[in-house]
């Protein structure tokens, strides 16, 4: 026990000294203004891409290739987790909550879905985007599991459908990229590839950015949902039977 405590102290000291060496390397510039590409992005996003959300423009246009990769990381994780749990069957692990909650949820679902879609579709004009909207979509399916019981969602939406949505989202992303390549403007080119810019701030602006947001939303929403439903496969049967119907 004493030795363990000692080791912890040594470990802490080591990490702190590593941190100290790194701390010394920090550069804090006295001048708070942006420099390099960041300054360019702030100044020219609107004219370059037609999107009013600079973050979305950087994510989906200037550095769209990174986002392609990031979305693929999620895709990889989902596929891998599904693979790890592929041999198990989804069993009933819960019966859901009381009828009042079920009814209440039923009323809220359309609103949540609209909210999620708006986050996805308006990613280029407001804060939000495919990742966030997709996560909200996935939340709906998680709520289904909590409120209606673990078997509910699978009986409405087959896992294969989610698989298809996820993969087609990824393919849509790649297709938009290849369209740019085919137009001769480079992979993931936006306005240069013939996507129309539209008036800044309107829904149909930003060229391919909304399209890419939708692709990422499909990928993330279906993916996170698959992830959740793969992982609850390890839950055991509930001990009690179904709650009494009212």
């Amino acid at each position: 026990m004493r030795a363990q405590v000692f080791h912890r102290w040594i470990g802490a000291a080591l990490c702190l000294s590593l941190g100290w060496w790194m701390w010394r390397g920090l550069i804090v510039s006295a001048d708070p203004s942006l420099f390099g590409p960041a300054a360019y992005y702030v100044a020219n996003t609107a004219s370059d891409t037609g999107a009013s959300n600079i973050v979305a423009a950087i994510l989906f246009d200037y550095r769209g290739f990174d986002t392609f990769g990031e979305a693929t990381v999620i895709y990889t994780t989902v596929c891998g987790v599904a693979m790890l749990f592929a041999k198990r069957r989804l069993r009933r692990s819960s019966w859901g909550l009381s009828p009042i909650v079920k009814r209440g949820m039923g009323m809220m679902v359309p609103f949540i879905l609209v909210y999620a879609s708006s986050i996805v579709i308006m990613g280029h004009i407001t804060p939000g985007g495919g990742f966030q909207g997709g996560a909200v979509f996935a939340t709906v399916t998680v709520l289904f599991c909590v409120i209606y019981g673990s078997k509910f969602e699978a009986s409405r939406i087959s896992p294969k459908v989610k698989e298809v949505i996820e993969s087609s989202g990824a393919l849509l992303f790649a297709a938009v990229g290849l369209w740019g390549l085919a137009e001769g403007a480079g992979f993931l080119a936006n306005l240069d590839a013939g996507f129309s810019s539209g008036p800044i701030g309107s829904l149909f602006s930003g060229g391919a950015i909304p399209l890419l947001n939708i692709a990422v939303g499909m990928k993330v929403g279906a993916g996170l949902s698959t992830l959740f439903y793969s992982m609850i496969k390890i839950l055991e049967d509930p001990a009690e039977g179904p709650p009494p119907e009212v």
Binding site: H7, G11, L14, C15, L18, W21, M22, R24
Partner: peptide, 16 residues
């Protein structure tokens, strides 16, 4: 992990 952090520490120290 302890070894790893030690290596990082030594490398950083040496370089600085």
């Amino acid at each position: 992990l302890f070894t790893l952090v030690t290596v990082a520490f030594v490398v950083l120290n040496f370089l600085q």
